[in-house]
Each structure stands twice: as C-alpha cells, then as structure tokens.
Nucleic acid binder design. Structure first.
Length: 563
RNA sequence: GCCCUCGUAGUUCAAUGGAUAGAACAGGACUCUUCUAAGGUCUUGAUGUAGGUCCGAUUCCUACCGAGGGCACCA
C-alpha cells in the first residue's frame, strides 16, 4: 500500500487529478513482464497513448521505481528490485508475526455473529462454513485493529424444542442420551418428522410443548437445559479441534427476558399490527412478507429473538458494525430484520449480512429432518486419517506425526472452504475435500515447511542465521521479483478481505505466493551459492516463511515446520 | 407465480469496467547422487443465449435459458 500510495502521489503531482483518484486507477498488470504497476491513461485525454508519453516525461519517479514505460494507453512502472527487496524484507523481518497488521479500526467495535449451530442437532458441514468464514473475518478484522466481539448465536430456543420434548417423552432413553447425546437427539428428531407425516397432530403437540416451555414449565426447562448442556459440550469439542473461540455463547434463549420490551418498543413506534391472530410488522410497502413478533398462540419466533438481540447488542456493545455470517438462504430474513431496525430508527448501514452459498450434494438438498447429513466429525476424521497415511509414505521419520496429521487434515478442510468466493454454492465432493495436491491447504503448509527446512539447514550446516544486513543488489532474477512483489502485497490483501468480507482473497494470495516461492525454490538454490547471495536469499526465504505463517494463522490454520 | 444468488476449459475455481481471460484437478510427456517430488517443467482446452451502455464488458443494464435458494405462525 505504501508503494502504491507514494506512486499515486507522484503521479498526482504531474496531473490535475487527486492522489486518491490516481490510486483508484492504479492497477497491477496481468503479466509481470508489463511491469508492477500500471496507470491507464484513458481519462487523461482523447489520445491515451500520447497522454501516457507526456505523463512519463512529467512524473518524478520515487526511488523504489526503477523505470517507467509507455505500453499502448498505459504508463507502466517497474520496481527497482533492490529497493523493493530492502523495503519489504526489512519490514517483514522487523515486524515478524505482526507483518500486515494495521490500525484502521482503532477504537472501533464490531459484533460478529457466526457459527451458531442448533442445539440438539449434529454439527454438520453446513455449519462449518459459517464457522470458518466467521473465524477468518474475526482474525483479519482484529489484525486490522478493530475490537471484535464474537457471538455464537446458538439455536437453543424455538418450536424445535417443542418437537424434541414431545419426541423425548415418547421415544427417549436416558442411557442413550448420556452415552451419545447428539446422536440420540437426532434419532428421535428424525423419527418425529417421520411419524408426523402420518400423524400431523404431533405438530400441534409440539407447539403446545414449546408454549409450555416458553411459559416457564419447570420440567420442560430442566430437560431443555440438559439438552443444551450436552450439545454444547459436543460443539466445544469441535471448536477445540478447529481452534475457534467465542467471546459469548449468548444464544437465542438468552434474549427471552428482553422479548416483551422489544415487542412493546415496536408497538410504541406504531410498527406492530395484528394479522390472522399474530402480531407482525407489516412490510408490504417494501415488497416483503411481514416480520413476526408473536405467533397466534402468543409464543415468540426467531424474528422476535433476532430483533431483541440486535437492540441488545447496540445497547450493550455500542459497535460501529454488526455482522451476521449466515447462509444465503436466510437473506430475506435479514432484509426484513434490517428494514424493521431502520424503521425503528437504527442507522441503516450498521448491520451487514455476510451470506454464503450452500453445500450441494449429488443426492440433493441436505436436511437434518430427514437425517441425511454429512457430519463434520466424519469429514475431519477422514481428512486426518488421510494426512496420517501420506505422512507415513512421504516422511516416516517425522516427529510428532499425530499433531502434524491433525494440522494438515484440518487445514485441508478449512482451506477448501475458504479458497472460493463465499457467495457461490459449494458442490460437496470427498475428492476435493481430501485432496492435498494443487491449490490446497496442505500445498501452502508444505511450502511453509520447505522454507523452514532451508532455514534449518543453513543454521545447521553453515551456522548461518537470518540477518537483515544483506546486499540487496544481489536480487536480480525474475523468480525473486515475483516473490517480493507478493510479499509486499500482503497488507493490501488483508484490507481487501475486510472490505469485501471475503476470505478467499487471502487464500488465493497464499496460493500465488506458494507457487512463486516453489518456482524460486527450483530455480534459485539458497545454500552453497556465493555468501552474499546466500544471505540475501535466506532473508527472502525467512520472509516467505513468515508471511505464509501469518496468512495461514489468519485463515485459522496451523503452519507446521515439518511435514 | 414473484424475489434473490450463481452460470468461465472435461471438472473445481480465479480475474478493483482495462492489455494476450489466470490457476488447479483429470489426461499425455518429462523431472529426485543438489535446500522435503504434498514439488517443478512442457502439453490440449473456456466467458450460457440475444440485445444494450461504454473508448473498452467475464464484470454494469434488459430479456431469455439453465442451476440453487427464498416467499408469516420452522431456524
């Protein structure tokens, strides 16, 4: 960013345009041979080529730019390799784990809701998406200086608990519940829906049971509490594996005491009306179905609880932003919610729904009710088992095999989820989930391990550590230039992730850096070259290692030093 | 029926409105007495259709086609 900013200022000084505008125009050419920055001159006059020629004469090049060249309508700038190397490698060397860290969000709070699994249901791969995207955004925004509050908005209230209470009364088994709580609850939940097809009156029974629960029936509450505790225990096990933490586990039930005042607030603002026996906020004017405050039997619904949660968060945290990482199938719900908040006088752009596409299966839609889910547990187990096997084949002498197998297996799953634009649906495929070659998490981790290996060897065989005091003029190869440019671009990529709420930009950047480094690795031997070249390259290797590590950490992955 | 999202090589994905649309996988050919072959090198191959805006469209607009999701008492 600093390079781009400074270059923009130099260009601005030679034109009528502001530095901000120039910076927006500046781009990175599609081909490295064309340069490192390109300024398109279309807006400078009717003959962009001539304008580029004129601009070339006028602009004072900053020291890190070696030359400028006119190519068609573009004025292209080429890094001075030694300057680029010195600035970038020195910065990475000094900032270490903090390279890329910024203070854009100083003093600004963000509430980030993500993961939010449903109590009494297994943790499926559907919830994995919200968890890994949310976790990555949490880390990136924190790295950029924002104060984050992560909220796991557990689905721990609602009609589904009426169903569970009914099902448990009919078919529940205490021993089975204690042995495999989530499994047992799923079984009776699936059975409930199966039997309800034949006996629709079960649905009424469930609504009645939920009503009793919401009215505070003691026996129901005790059972609910038990279901919640047992499920949460299971979820925490996954969060430990994935290394995800939450600042609060305030689920839907937490907002129960606030529902009455929330409903009253809507009534005071004259937003609530009664329709078909239910209390709603009519949204016809905006071409949306109503937001429901009270069902016709008087009980609450997720709309009510989300509304109460929104007000609570504003009051309690005073954030500049509330972000919901929830699948795109709930898009309409959030549009309704945000519209009602706006009608209630809340600033409009305070809330953002970061949506993502659904997992798709060859067999069709996944449904907990029908019991055809792929459990996260199964996915993780398979990935770790495969990682174990590959380690046995490729590096049987490795220390801490089990630890590395976990890091690599879990990393493969996380990266597969984070490497594509979140808005797209994901076609579930075991083959892709369990691939360790090509554009995968293990490929990035492997590249990191390779860099570590070089550094170890230099230390061991040449007693040579990494020093920032090197002759930067030794950098002159295309492979080195490519790596350096990607290292320098890392902070910008983090900003882009934050601006778009899209982690895949970071994942893609790490792939590009890994590819560039692996090309460098084959073309440019580090050890056994001339001493000054070796020192320079060691510093470069160290920087790659550091940036890959920082990037993987921000994605929520581990960076093993050997694998 | 209405609304939203997505359509890019055989497959899975990239590409702030810009230059010759970039990878990976699968297939074929190479590459480990030299820093980890989970790697590298070479090779075939793509913007759903029809219009429009623009100096310039994979990107923006309209229609259509295809896939997915949603449309008040589930979350």
């Amino acid at each position: 960013m600093r390079f781009q900013e400074e270059l923009a200022e130099r260009i601005a000084a030679a034109t009528q345009l502001s530095a901000e505008k120039i910076a927006a125009f500046l781009e990175i050419p599609p081909d490295k041979k064309l340069g490192d920055f390109a300024f398109p001159c279309f807006s400078l006059g009717k003959n962009p080529h001539e304008a580029a020629e004129q601009l070339k004469e006028k602009v004072q090049l900053p020291p890190f730019i070696a030359k400028a060249a006119v190519i068609g309508p573009y004025l292209n700038f080429f890094f001075s390799l030694p300057h680029l190397a010195e600035a970038t490698l020195t910065e990475v060397y000094q900032q270490v784990d903090f390279y890329g860290k910024q203070d854009l969000g100083k003093g600004k709070k963000i509430v980030l809701e993500f993961s939010s699994p449903n109590i009494a249901k297994p943790f499926g791969i559907g919830h994995l998406r919200s968890t890994v995207i949310g976790n990555c955004l949490y880390k990136v925004f924190s790295f950029l200086g924002y104060a984050l509050i992560s909220v796991n908005h557990l689905g721990d209230w609602g009609t589904q608990f009426g169903k569970l209470l009914v099902a448990y009364k009919k078919w529940g088994n205490k021993a089975a519940l204690e042995r495999e709580p989530v499994q047992h609850l799923l079984e009776i939940y699936v059975r409930f829906h199966k039997e309800a097809e034949q006996h629709p009156e079960l649905e009424d029974e469930a609504r009645e049971a939920f009503k009793k629960l919401e009215e505070g029936d003691k026996a129901s509450l005790e059972l609910w509490e038990l279901f919640r505790e047992l499920s949460l225990e299971e979820f925490r096990r996954f969060y430990r594996i994935l290394d995800v933490e939450f600042d609060t586990y305030h689920g839907e039930a937490f907002y129960n005491p606030l529902l009455d005042e929330t409903v009253k607030k809507m009534q005071h603002k004259d937003l609530a009306t009664i329709s078909e026996g239910a209390l709603i906020v009519d949204l016809q004017k905006w071409n949306m179905p109503p937001l429901m405050l009270r069902k016709s039997d008087g009980t609450s619904i997720y709309h009510t609880r989300d509304l109460a949660a929104a007000f609570y968060r504003l009051r309690h945290y005073k954030p500049i932003k509330v972000i919901y990482v929830v699948g795109s199938e709930q898009k309409l719900h959030f549009q309704q919610l945000f519209k009602v908040l706006e009608l209630a006088g809340v600033k409009k752009d305070l809330f953002t729904h970061v949506d993502f596409g659904l997992f798709r299966f060859p067999e069709g839609k996944m449904s907990t009710r029908k019991g055809n889910v792929i459990f996260l547990e199964e996915v993780l187990d398979k990935a770790v088992a495969l990682a174990r096997k590959v380690i046995e084949e490729k590096n049987p002498a490795l220390q801490q095999k089990e630890e590395v197998a976990k890091q690599v297996g879990v990393g493969a799953i996380l990266f597969a989820d984070l490497s594509a634009d979140r808005v797209r649906d994901v076609e579930f495929s075991w083959e892709k989930m369990l691939s360790f070659e090509g554009e995968t998490g293990p490929y990035v981790q492997y590249t990191h391990a390779r860099a570590c290996s070089i550094l170890r060897k230099a230390q061991k065989e040449h007693n040579l550590g990494v020093s920032p005091l090197v002759n930067f003029a030794t950098f002159n190869l295309e492979e080195e230039r490519a790596v350096l440019a990607l290292l320098a671009g890392f902070p910008d990529v983090l900003q882009k992730v934050a601006e778009t709420y899209k982690p895949h930009h970071l994942a893609q950047h790490l792939i590009a850096l890994s590819q560039a480094f692996n090309e460098f690795y084959h073309k440019c031997p580090v050890i056994s070259e001339q001493m000054h070249t070796m020192k320079g390259r060691l510093l470069l290797v160290q920087s790659v290692r550091q940036v890959l590590k920082n990037g993987l950490q921000l994605l929520g992955m581990k960076a093993p030093e050997e694998m």
